[in-house]
């Protein structure tokens, strides 16, 4: 009797523990996705989102980052100061200059090159691709050092060649000249991007169905007409992708070259908005001013990005 009872009780206990463990397993399953995402989310939270919020707060404060001191709230002072700073106005102009200036290198020339070289056979194509890609993998410091040497005012290859060809008779100090400095930084950035963009456009082109071109050719469409009516519309997702990349990243691409070659000068003629943020923060130790600029441009770039996203949804033509 008691034996039977014990068995029944132990069976019941077993059931209860089973239920418990099943419930535990179910709640574990519920938590599992978050557990797997935890490291990434935690790291992005600590090193991206939390500091971004701190920057928004710092934009309204004055602080020199000296340990032991506390930031003082100053309201909109930093924003007012920003617009009274001449270099800041310069930097906005240059940011626009670099952003628009990069488009021929990231979209127009690469697209034409990709079209002009479409249909090349595999192995030859790979050799070219391998060479086109080299600027993309080199460090900004490396590229900066080489260009600085190539454009050296007294002994650089460019000055030597220009004089040998009789184009100029004196040395040009490219990086300390307000006109040349920013064009050179633009060209360097373009040089780094052009090969990469060409490869991206070539890859997109090979995915276009060749039948379209054959049909168009049968209908008597010229090459130029094919480009305008078939190629460009079908490449529009790639074009918009590269446009977004260029706008969001051109200031980051130029940052390194500005820092290495001109430090923003001469007279702020080659600086851009991100370089000003860096200068305010780590040269002038003015965390508030830097954060105000960061906040302002975060908003500007967010609006542009939303706009481009809508544009992509509306105009990108997909060949399904």
């Amino acid at each position: 009797m008691s034996e039977v009872k014990r068995i029944i009780v132990s069976e019941q206990e077993k059931k209860v523990t089973e239920q418990k463990s099943r419930r535990a397993a179910r709640s574990l399953i519920k938590w599992k996705p978050y557990l797997f995402l935890l490291p990434a989310i935690l790291l992005l939270g600590v090193w991206m989102y939390k500091p971004l919020l701190s920057t928004f707060v710092l934009a309204f404060q004055k602080w020199s980052m000296v340990p032991g001191t506390e930031p003082i709230t100053v309201g909109l002072d930093n924003f007012i100061r920003l617009f009274q700073t001449k270099d800041f106005i310069h930097s906005i102009e240059n940011t626009i200059f670099y952003t628009i200036g990069i488009l021929p290198f990231s979209i127009i020339i690469p697209m034409l090159l990709a079209v002009a070289t479409n249909g090349l056979n595999g192995r030859v194509k790979n050799v070219y691709r391998a060479m086109f890609f080299i600027p993309m993998i080199l460090a900004p410091v490396t590229v900066g050092a080489i260009w600085r040497w190539l454009f050296h005012p007294a002994n650089g290859l460019v000055n030597l060649t220009l004089q040998k060809l009789g184009i100029t008779d004196g040395n040009i100090s490219f990086f300390t000249d307000p006109v040349y400095a920013k064009w050179l930084i633009l060209f360097m950035t373009g040089w780094g991007l052009i090969g990469f963009s060409t490869i991206i456009f070539s890859a997109a082109l090979t995915n276009i169905n060749r039948d379209y071109f054959e049909a168009a050719a049968l209908d008597g469409a010229t090459k130029w007409k094919q480009l305008l009516t078939i190629t460009i519309p079908l490449l529009s997702p790639t074009i918009l992708f590269m446009l977004t990349m260029s706008i969001l990243f051109s200031s980051q691409f130029t940052f390194a070259y500005i820092d290495i070659l001109t430090a923003g000068g001469p007279f702020g003629s080659s600086t851009n908005i991100y370089y000003e943020m860096y200068k305010y923060g780590f040269n002038n130790l003015n965390a508030g001013l830097s954060s105000a600029a960061a906040t302002l441009f975060f908003i500007v770039f967010a609006i542009i990005a939303i706009g481009l996203n809508l544009l992509t949804k509306k105009f990108a033509f997909y060949d399904n």
Partner: peptide, 17 residues
Amino acid sequence: LLSLTWLIPFQAVMIPN
């Protein structure tokens, strides 16, 4: 949250970091 990080340039978080 992942996609929005594209919008955060490193220069905007460098001081707090």
